[in-house]
Design a protein around this nucleic acid. Structure first.
Length: 1133
RNA sequence: GCCCAUGUGGCGGAAUUGGUAGACGCAGCAGACUCAAAAUCUGCCAUUCGCAAGGGUGUGAAGGUUCGAUUCCUUUCGUGGGCACCA
């Protein structure tokens, strides 16, 4: 019987699907284990062989844990919002939703072929409204929260508002409160003023920030779309532009993100990367006077009386981690974009400064930091050293970034390499404050030196000087201690289409959140994906989506007899205040009802109290069901009031509201009946569906004026920051994840993904988790207990050297040349990708054959005018005058029918034509072979190029395993004989190795161990069920299909996926002696077999008698004999 | 530039973390079976000197610690990843 992997794998995949063996329940008596993969972005290129590396690793570990008796959650989904789909839409006009759907279908079928144990019923897609509803919802939690630095956690912003209303604010409450105000002042502020202060505290907030702006394309570009200051597409100039952006206040969590690293099991390098990203440093902020001086003659700290200078009103504040070097400051460097520069530049330097700023504007941050070239410009101004009055020239240079610290540094060239180079380049004299530690050739960042040339610090050790300087600065009031972070708040807006829309509307400059009931705010359909009129996202073009009916005045809403109301904004504000007051002045009966209906207590419907609708303020309203509950006081019997009530009721009825009334008596004496009636009323009314909602925000919010929707969308990391929670409870419509589910599954026990997400995704999801924890929505504040980094599988691109032949200004054809390095042809040689599909191996070289070139040409017209050529031919036939090569003489004389290609290891990507599709590999060798081969390639953590060459070996191994059970001619060969000790030894050695290796994710060595085991079993001709079935269980995580097939062939009932993992018996492997290597001076010369219980003296005696050792000793006595039990023996001569 | 990782035969990699460098596999070579091919099996396979026995060299490079270093330390070079709007 043959190993027909195609049939076997299909059969079991179908069987498993039908039996739902991968369905995971949130209820189990088994211990839980949560294995998570970083979910893929479903690109148009499909899954490539690099993706499954981590997925196979996690699948192996999940299956292993299952065999070990755990309830394992191992889900999969798609990070389906993103730029590529939008880019594709821009080029082809296909809607991203369409292409994304198609791509996901492809990915899923590809994943399924590999035989992963996912519970697809838990799949999540970030672009699914049912999912991003909750992304938006969590964003609103962030928006509605602030960071309380005293409690050191996030709290609802309503609490802050309350505190402002009663206590006002002192500036020192938070570094984010810009000025102090009393409660009375706060209450007197306009809505706009209040919101501005609150915006400054929200965890999700909006402010102006710089973006890469490309005027020609009319759009904002990503950093990697900008190359050397121009756009990647089209090469148009790009410059920095300020735009309103959303941010997440990740800086508030800097310390907790840092501390949290102590509690998780990530690799040290990963933690290190995150620490560096956060970049916490302790130092000082120092403020300097700025002067504009014609001369810098300084006399004992006092400028010469004869030299005129003016003191600017500007002050220069720098951040430094080395206050001890204050006397070594030879110049200041300010970030060119700071406003300060405009204030302090002198007239003589203005032209030079402006020119330099224009140059800097054109450069990206990455360029600026990566640049080796030293650039800068003197501003003409000087800062005054507060300790000795020395005037220090102020420069601007791109190596100082505005966003870090204060955007200005004090440069100490003797102690800082970059400052030193800058000083050398611009011939700025260098002060040496570290004596012999400084050699004049390079800076020395020592902290050990005794200070020199440092005024009152002379002779003080640098490590002590910092503290002295800090004290002096604080005494003089010109500086303070400062903890600084390199990390900036996370930009959360994208001027793009294919992302989550913000659940925010803007009304007169105030951001107003949508209500939870209004979510999801669906991404509207667009026909064009170009940027908005002034660089906003494409959504800005859909005016009937963006422009909302301005929040109508009560009159506009048709209020008949408002009496105390009219249509002006101020009056409307009064209504709101009225409502607010009503809430405070609630009657006892109203409070009773409120306690019963709040928090969705009744029929899961949200009630509000004293909520203005147009000009009316009903006692309670459920907006979703359009139900109003009134608790009547006695005054409702008055004639005027009845008239008003009737008018109100009929207008509200027109708007779809039903009103039910209860008296105070009823509330006091028959509460149960009242509640029952409310419930009854709710049940008779339909929920207002999202579609039926008017385009206008629910009435009663906003401050009037123009009302528009936010037009930017959320970035890629929004959806991926919390997806691990959704898998736990993916279908929940009431909440993002039920607390019971998140408590049961708790943290992700094992998270597998690439290092490319080291800082971005991991920090953001850690942040979201901490916020959700602070708000009491989940029970832990670190999402991932353990992180395993998977390496990248790179592609091997094949490059061909190509000469373009141009005739009469028209590209005539391309000549592919075998080895251009030998060529001195004057024609331009261009490298070009050849799709890997058509690349063959010959003599360890990549080649493109004539035959494959023809196939290539059939497939794509792109290659139609390609021809093989030889270097010699080019020389012979090229007509340089006309840049023309005679066709005839070329192809006929070609020695070989192929050209060699230049291999290049790089990322797998469609544009590089080096993507290898796992489907092809699975079709040819089967999923089990593919899974084991990917693992066999090397350690999961390591990056390596994909190479199919070795796959035969793994496939041969599986066939060999098969032949332990079945013979091609004889059929079944396994038997029920009792296993011998030698056979059990092979088995238990394997159990030990596989278990150890799987536990430590050393899957490549585990595959080797399987091979060794099968080879050994063949050597002893062991076909015994007793041994073989144990091996099969070990193999399940690695090659589930063949294991299940052979398991059933052995006559077992039920699936092997839930078999009992074999236990290792150490007693079977005990040895009594060992073949010791004997070294002379560390070099192995011979081996001797010794009993394991020998002592040092016994060994020395035996060694002395050994022939080989005697030969090397040449009669002398050994100086020393080193004997390490169970390891080795070394004789020192 | 800064941060992180990494470098071992023709190739992917192994080495119980300081103790026989090259397990396992690919490729290659020689042979068996076969009319032949495929499949399978056996042997060789870092490099160099040598008929052999045996010896020299060898884990990117240069130094150091140690009885002993792929492993620890210092310096240096190459490659890959990240650097905040690719995901």
């Amino acid at each position: 019987m043959e190993y027909k992997f195609n049939e076997i794998e299909k059969k079991w995949q179908d069987h498993w699907k039908e039996k739902k063996v991968y369905k995971v329940s949130n209820e189990s008596t088994k211990p839980k284990y949560y294995v998570l993969d970083m979910f893929p972005y479903p690109s148009g290129a499909g899954l490539h062989v690099g993706h499954p590396l981590g997925y196979i690793a996690s699948d192996i570990y999940s299956r292993y844990k299952r065999l070990k008796g755990f309830n394992v959650l191992h889900p999969m989904g798609f990070d389906s919002f993103g730029l590529p789909a939008e880019q594709y839409a821009l080029e082809t006009g296909q809607h991203p939703a369409e292409t994304t759907k198609k791509n996901i279908a492809t990915f899923k079928s590809q994943l399924d072929k590999i035989g992963f144990c996912y519970d697809w019923e838990r799949e999540v897609q970030t672009s699914d409204p049912n999912y991003y509803k909750w992304t938006q919802w969590i964003f609103l939690q962030l928006f509605n929260s602030y960071y309380d630095t005293t409690a050191n956690k996030a709290k609802p912003i309503a609490e802050l508002v309350k505190s402002f209303e009663t206590n006002g604010a002192a500036t020192h409450d938070s570094p984010l409160t810009t000025h102090a105000f009393t409660a009375a002042e706060w209450n007197g502020y306009s809505k706009q003023q209040q919101e501005e202060i609150l915006m400054n505290r929200r965890l999700a907030f909006s402010k102006y920030g710089e973006v890469n702006w490309c005027e020609a394309l009319g759009t904002v570009l990503a950093n990697d779309e900008v190359v050397n200051g121009v756009s990647e597409r089209g090469g148009h100039p790009v410059e920095k532009k300020k735009m309103r952006q959303w941010y997440l206040r990740i800086t508030a969590y800097a310390d907790r993100l840092l501390d949290g690293l102590e509690t998780v099991d990530f690799s040290d390098s990963m933690k290190e990367m995150q620490r560096n990203w956060i970049g916490k440093s302790q130092g000082a902020e120092i403020t300097f006077q700025v002067v504009n001086s014609q001369s810098s003659i300084v006399n004992n700290g006092v400028p010469d009386s004869g030299v005129p200078f003016t003191i600017h009103h500007s002050l220069l504040t720098v951040y430094t981690t080395r206050p001890d070097t204050i006397f070594g400051v030879d110049f200041m460097v300010v970030a060119p974009e700071l406003d300060l520069v405009q204030q302090i530049k002198t007239p003589e330097q203005t032209a030079a400064v402006d020119e330099y700023i224009a140059y800097v504007k054109s450069r990206s941050d990455v360029d600026r930091m990566a640049e080796k070239k030293i650039t800068g410009c003197f501003t003409g101004a000087y800062a005054v050293n507060p300790f000795d009055g020395k005037q220090i020239p102020i420069w601007i240079s791109e190596y100082v970034l505005a966003g870090y610290g204060t955007g200005a540094i004090m440069a100490v060239p003797c102690g800082d390499e970059r400052d030193f180079k800058f000083a050398k380049h611009f011939n700025i004299p260098i002060t040496n404050i570290i004596g012999s530690y400084f050699n004049g050739e390079e800076a020395n960042a020592t902290k050990e030196a005794l200070l020199e040339n440092s005024g009152f610090l002379n002779g003080v050790k640098m490590t002590d000087a910092a503290e002295i300087v800090l004290q002096q600065l604080e005494e003089k009031g010109i500086g303070k201690r400062k903890v600084n972070y390199r990390m900036r708040d996370a930009g959360f807006s994208r001027q793009r289409y294919w992302g989550e829309p913000f659940p925010i509307i803007w009304s007169d400059g105030v951001a107003i959140p949508l209500d939870a009931e209004e979510l999801p705010l669906q991404l509207p359909h667009v026909d064009k994906y170009g940027p908005g009129p002034s660089g906003e996202g494409p959504l800005a073009n859909i005016t009937d989506w963006v422009d909302l009916t301005p929040n109508p005045s009560p009159k506009e809403r048709g209020a008949k007899d408002p009496g105390y109301m009219n249509s002006t904004k101020d009056e409307w504000r009064k209504t709101l205040q009225f409502a607010k007051q009503n809430r405070k002045d609630a009657t006892v009966e109203e409070d009773i009802i409120w306690q019963e209906v709040r928090n969705r207590k009744i029929a899961d419907c949200k009630f509000r109290r004293q909520h203005p609708i147009a000009g009316y303020i009903p006692d309670f309203v459920c907006l979703e069901k359009r139900l109003i509950v009134e608790i009547d006081g006695g005054y409702h019997n008055e004639a005027d009031q009845i008239k008003f009530d009737t008018a109100r009721e009929s207008w509200l009825a027109e708007q779809g509201f039903t009103m039910i009334r209860f008296t105070n008596d009823e509330v006091n004496n028959a509460l149960k009946t009242v509640l029952k009636n409310i419930e009854q009323a709710l049940s008779t009314k339909e929920s207002i569906s999202e579609a039926a909602e008017s385009n206008s925000p629910l009435p009663g919010r906003g401050v009037g004026g123009e009302v528009k929707r936010e037009t930017s969308t959320m970035p890629g990391y929004a959806g991926s920051s919390w997806y691990f929670l959704r898998y736990m409870d993916p279908k929940n419509t009431a909440t993002f994840c039920d607390r019971k589910a998140s408590d049961y599954w708790n943290q992700v026990d094992l998270y597998i993904g690439g290092t490319e997400h080291a800082v971005g995704h991991l920090l953001y999801s850690r942040l979201w988790t901490k916020v959700l924890f602070d708000l009491g929505l989940i029970g832990y504040d670190e999402p991932f207990k353990r992180l395993l980094n998977q390496g990248m599988i790179q592609g091997v691109s094949a490059l061909v050297k190509r000469i373009m032949v141009v005739k009469n200004d028209e590209v005539n054809r391309f000549l592919l040349i075998p080895d251009a390095t030998k060529s001195q042809t004057p024609l331009e040689i261009i490298q070009f990708y050849v799709p890997v599909k058509y690349v063959e191996y010959k003599d360890n070289q990549l080649i493109l054959t004539r035959e494959n070139l023809l196939k290539l040409q059939e497939e794509s017209p792109l290659y139609l005018n390609w021809e093989l050529a030889t270097v010699n031919n080019i020389f012979e036939s090229v007509d340089l005058q006309n840049n023309f090569i005679e066709r005839q003489s070329l192809t006929d004389n070609l020695k070989d029918d192929y050209v060699t290609l230049q291999p290049l290891v790089e990322k797998m990507s469609k544009s590089k034509y080096n993507v290898v599709n796992p489907d092809d590999v699975v079709d040819k060798y089967g999923a089990d072979t593919f899974r084991m081969y990917e693992m066999f390639l090397g350690p999961v953590e390591a990056s390596k190029p994909w190479d199919t060459k070795g796959i035969e070996g793994v496939h041969r191994f599986l066939r060999k395993l098969w032949r332990l059970f079945n013979d091609e001619l004889k059929g079944k060969v396994w038997n029920n004989d009792k296993a011998t000790d030698a056979e059990l030894k092979i088995l238990h050695r394997t159990i030990k190795k596989i278990e150890e290796d799987t536990e430590k994710f050393s899957f490549n060595t585990a595959v080797s161990a399987f091979m060794i085991c099968v080879n050994d079993l063949f050597d002893v001709k062991c076909h015994k069920k007793e041994v073989l079935e144990k091996i099969l269980i070990l193999l399940v995580p690695y090659a589930p299909h063949i294991a299940e097939e052979l398991w059933s062939q052995l006559g077992n009932e039920g699936t092997i996926l839930d078999a009992q993992y074999p236990t290792f018996n150490a007693a079977l492997l005990v040895e009594s002696s060992k073949e010791y290597p004997v070294s002379i001076n560390g070099k192995v010369r011979t081996n001797i077999n010794l009993s394991l219980d020998l002592q040092q003296a016994d060994v020395e005696k035996i060694i002395a008698e050994n022939e080989v050792v005697q030969k090397w000793l040449e009669g002398k006595a050994p100086k020393k004999v080193i004997y390490v039990k169970n390891k080795m023996i070394n004789v020192v001569i």
